[in-house]
């Protein structure tokens, strides 16, 4: 099959998944209605207060706060979108639409289309919330975008994108090998490893230079959260940023290849969840010709 044909097919799958994601009631509420409501409340509150800036003394506010906020919104946004991919794949597997779609596109395109399509929807959501949070915070705190360094402006989107791809691929693969939503087991937890550093958020913010915190930044599943927070609260050497991004991107590349092969087998298997050993074997079997 010609490469162009594959590309347009993937484009069609992406468009379809994106459209279904943004037409969803939950998405409309979370991305349009709720932010609009909050924005309205802030606006009315501001009008009632008068146009003057807030009275919070600026000395009490750490300048890195906006970067931490941004890091959190981006990270949580990427993570939640990954979880949505998880449920999307499970739902499609349960509804048995898979076989019909696979008679038109490859399993790889099906998976990639879902991840990219839902990712775009998630991106919109993250942007909306980031903008809203910024304006909301500004009503009460003397926050400006000047708190962000050019390095952050360049690398945060990269951490977001690769972080999302990592979580989404892990979750899509996990879902493809599960019997149903209720079968639980290790598969449902797999994405949480990416979330783990958030448990230690306080340590991350207070002691960003601890050796093991620095080391954690190079462990790809931890990279997006740890590096974004570290960059927010301390000076991080450029080589650390570059190396962590390279490791993360390389991991995502290898993982998607592994995941596509697991997905291909898992998505057509009904009635039981795959064991970790089976998943490992599927993922490593040689590519078909």
């Amino acid at each position: 099959m010609a490469l162009r044909e594959t590309k347009t097919k993937l484009g069609k799958v992406v468009a379809w998944e994106f459209r279904r994601a943004v037409m969803n009631k939950g998405f409309v509420i979370m991305t349009v209605l709720l932010p609009a409501l909050i924005g309205l409340v802030i606006l009315i509150y501001g009008l009632a207060e008068g146009r003057g800036a807030s009275s919070v003394p600026s000395e009490s506010l750490p300048p890195f706060l906006i970067a931490v906020f941004l890091a959190l919104i981006l990270f949580v946004g990427a993570f939640i979108s990954g979880v949505i991919v998880f449920y999307g794949v499970l739902k499609e597997k349960a509804s048995r639409v898979v076989e019909l779609v696979l008679s038109s596109v490859s399993a790889k395109d099906m998976m990639a289309g879902k991840i990219i399509g839902l990712g775009l929807a998630g991106l919109i959501q993250a942007i909306v919330w980031a903008v809203l949070a910024y304006f909301a915070a500004r009503r009460f705190l003397p926050i400006t975008l000047a708190g962000l360094s050019p390095m952050q402006l360049v690398t945060y989107p990269l951490y977001f994108v690769f972080g999302y791809l990592l979580v989404a691929t892990l979750y899509a693969t996990a879902a493809s090998t599960m019997k149903d939503v209720h079968s639980g087991g290790v598969q449902g937890m797999v994405g949480l490893i990416v979330y783990l550093p958030m448990v230690f958020l306080k340590i991350l913010v207070e002691h960003p230079e601890l050796p093991w915190v620095r080391a954690a930044g190079f462990f790809p599943p931890f990279t997006p959260s740890v590096m974004m927070i570290r960059m927010a609260v301390t000076e991080v050497a450029w080589w650390e940023v570059a190396l962590s991004l390279a490791l993360l991107a390389g991991t995502v590349f290898l993982l998607t290849r592994f995941a596509a092969k697991v997905f291909e087998v898992g998505i057509l298997m009904y009635g039981k969840s795959a064991t970790l050993r089976e998943i490992w074997r599927w993922g490593l079997r040689s590519s078909r010709g």
Binding site: K9, K12, V13, W16, R20, M23, N24, K91, E92, S95, R96, V97, V98, E99, L100, V101, S103, S104, V105, Y270
Partner: peptide
């Protein structure tokens, strides 16, 4: 292909689904 395992996108509209699948 009409598979024995039947399923469609429950949340999508009939015409949209057909246009999408025909597009593929």
């Amino acid at each position: 292909y009409l598979p024995e395992e039947r399923g469609l996108y429950a949340d999508a509209k009939v015409l949209d689904t057909l246009v999408y699948l025909a597009g593929l």
